[in-house]
Design a protein around this nucleic acid. Sequence first.
DNA 1: GCCGTTTTCGGCCCGACTGTTTTCAGTCG
Length: 562
Amino acid sequence: MTNSQVAELLRSIAAAYAIKGGNRFQIAAYETAADSIEHMSGSLQDFWAQGTLDSVPGVGSHLATYLDELFQTGKVRHFEETVKGIPEATFDFLKIPGVGPKTAYKIAEAGVISIADLEKRIQSGYLEKKGFGKKTLQNILRGIEEFRRKSDRILLPLAWETAEGVLNYLRAMPEVKQADSLGSLRRMVATVGDVDLSVASKEPKKVIDFFTRYPEAARVIEAGDKTATIALKSGIRVDLMVQPPEHYGSLLQHFTGSKSHNIALRTYALGIGYSLSEYGVKEEKSGKTISCPTENDLYDLLKMQTPPPELREGTGEIEAALKLQLPRIITTGKIKGDLHTHTVWSDGQNTLAEMVEGAKSLGYEYLAITDHSYPNLDFEKRIFQIEQYNYSKRDIRVIIGLEVNISADSTLQIPDKILQKHEFIIASIHTSFRQPKEQITARLISAIENPYVDMIAHPTGRLLLEREGYEADWEKVFEACVKHDKILEINAFPNRLDLPDNLVRSAVAAGVKLAINTDSHHVSQLSLMPYGVSVARRGWAGEKGIVNTLPWNKVKSILKIN
DNA sequence: GCCGTTTTCGGCCCGACTGTTTTCAGTCG
């Protein structure tokens, strides 16, 4: 059973309690546990197998007992009791935005059996006769529409570029003191839903008006005094919030989130006498509002460090910030080379010389050219070409690399005697993704054990918005990497961002060496590096464990290159 | 049902918006 399946189950139970009028804190406890399980890096089932369920935040003694029963028997008697009397369709309706437990139950009780059926029965007037208000039904229809075109999350770089476009437009306005992105975009989450933006200004109305006239806007969805939403021609929705400069820090903090970071932060603040909201900080004793023009003012007031937005996921950053022990996470400026790129020798679109020019313009000291090991590739000739290049140009070192497939039977696609002639070998899985967890783990470990392999690329094989990564026992993979001193990649390609941030965090904790690479197939893609760095930052990675922050003379000795 | 530099018992984040059961419940971020 996967983490997201368990999370969905727990959310159903929370909804069932809500329908039956249960204790709201108990309901919140189930939801908190669901969130926590969904975001944890390891498999919950593995935690269960090791008897460490209660180390999962939000899982206490009761839930641990239920989960134990779940993993042993596939069901939980208490859960089955809890959902008794609630029609099954109720839980489908919960997937519709705007429909919560109470409404879902009311719809199901009216005899509606599915979302498609719901749509029909609204249009036929059946539900209106059952006592639902007209506007409520219109909203449900809109919710169904949204549910259908759901998954229109977009990749981080697209969201980023979209936001930059609007922000630059807004910043040109003299009334705009400051403009920023918010939410999952500011936290650099791998995929983003809506683009949320904020502006500090004393003239909110003027800013809103200017915003709604953005040239790329297709239509204005809503525009109030302080907030507005537009839909761009690209289909992306952009929300804007405007606050006067004196409380801008509170606004920025509030809408950057995440939800669990904010809950934890406000709980802590209450404990020391402050109530937080997007409008400022209220001192409970005096009742007066303290203004926080910047986020630093706000976190300073709470006597803690300001966590970088990438860390604000409610996974220990508040505790660390209070002890003034936040990690110093990596920045893009520290990257000194790219260890995974392709040229026309395999499926890249640029020549060796063109790729190297691109790397030089980024100020890199070295660049690994790691074409795919197509069996018909003229390995010798390619090696010779790179050697010639290094001989003629001394301003950047080109590493003679190769990316080799790990076959379904755990062998490498190319014999060792060819691998041996290269300076840097990347091994990666490109086929047979559906093998069982044990087999995938064995494939990865067998590649790690090969003495010629230096790095495992895009370790989980996920393609964002397309397919999940394959399952592997990551603890074992990390262990093997440490034992054989091998590198795991953080692939910066927009639809990969792989290792995922939560696994980066476990890998860092396990002491695994990492490298952040673009996997460029075109010279322009070398500039995607910051997205890979953002994944490392979200994984609490410092400069230290990232191999390609090292200067050439150090990398050289790590990779055992002469 | 969880959790502990207020607490192993008694607390548990904050505010906006919407519809409609006109004083609040439901949902969301």
